[in-house]
Lab assay of single mutants.
Amino acid sequence: TSEVNPQMLQDLQAAGFDEDMVIQALQKTNNRSIEAAIEFISKM
C-alpha cells in the first residue's frame, strides 16, 4: 500500500471521517490535499 500523510489522516479523522475511507482517499489522491481527499470521499 502507498503511504498516507499522517497529518492529513489525523486532520480528516478529527473532522469525523472514517479511518478506512480516509486512507483510501489519501492513497487515491496521492496525498495531494485534504480538499482532494474530501472530494474523493464525497464521491464514494
Results as ranks from 00 to 15, higher is better:
residue 17 F to L: 05
residue 14 A to M: 09
residue 42 S to K: 15
residue 41 I to Y: 04
residue 22 V to S: 15
residue 24 Q to A: 12
residue 21 M to A: 13
residue 12 L to F: 01
residue 4 V to P: 12
residue 9 L to V: 12
residue 19 E to R: 15
residue 36 A to V: 04
residue 9 L to N: 04
residue 19 E to C: 08
residue 10 Q to I: 06
residue 13 Q to P: 00
residue 36 A to S: 11
residue 15 A to S: 06
residue 1 T to Q: 12
residue 21 M to S: 12
residue 21 M to N: 09
residue 22 V to G: 13
residue 33 S to L: 00
residue 11 D to Y: 11
residue 38 I to E: 13
residue 22 V to R: 02
residue 40 F to M: 12
residue 1 T to N: 15
residue 44 M to G: 12
residue 6 P to N: 15
residue 30 N to Q: 12
residue 30 N to M: 02
residue 20 D to K: 13
residue 19 E to Y: 07
residue 20 D to H: 07
residue 11 D to E: 15
residue 42 S to L: 07
residue 17 F to Y: 14
residue 29 T to V: 08
residue 9 L to E: 06
residue 39 E to G: 08
residue 37 A to T: 05
residue 30 N to W: 00
residue 25 A to E: 01
residue 15 A to H: 05
residue 14 A to K: 13
residue 6 P to V: 13
residue 33 S to P: 02
residue 18 D to H: 09
residue 32 R to Y: 07
residue 13 Q to I: 15
residue 11 D to H: 08
residue 28 K to I: 04
residue 42 S to A: 13
residue 27 Q to A: 10
residue 34 I to P: 12
residue 23 I to F: 06
residue 25 A to G: 04
residue 44 M to E: 15
residue 15 A to G: 03
residue 28 K to Q: 13
residue 26 L to C: 04
residue 21 M to P: 03
residue 6 P to E: 15
residue 7 Q to D: 10
residue 3 E to N: 10
residue 38 I to P: 09
residue 14 A to S: 12
residue 32 R to V: 14
residue 27 Q to D: 09
residue 6 P to F: 10
residue 13 Q to R: 15
residue 41 I to V: 04
residue 16 G to F: 00
residue 14 A to R: 11
residue 41 I to W: 01
residue 33 S to K: 03
residue 2 S to V: 06
residue 12 L to P: 02
residue 24 Q to N: 09
residue 27 Q to T: 13
residue 26 L to I: 06
residue 24 Q to P: 06
residue 22 V to C: 15
residue 13 Q to S: 10
residue 31 N to Q: 02
residue 5 N to F: 00
residue 22 V to Y: 01
residue 16 G to N: 03
residue 15 A to F: 06
residue 30 N to I: 05
residue 28 K to E: 14
residue 13 Q to H: 04
residue 27 Q to L: 11
residue 17 F to S: 03
residue 2 S to H: 09
residue 13 Q to G: 05
residue 15 A to Y: 08
residue 23 I to C: 08
residue 4 V to M: 04
residue 18 D to P: 10
residue 13 Q to M: 14
residue 10 Q to K: 14
residue 39 E to H: 11
residue 20 D to S: 12
residue 3 E to V: 01
residue 22 V to A: 15
residue 5 N to W: 00
residue 41 I to L: 12
residue 42 S to V: 07
residue 8 M to E: 05
residue 1 T to R: 11
residue 29 T to E: 03
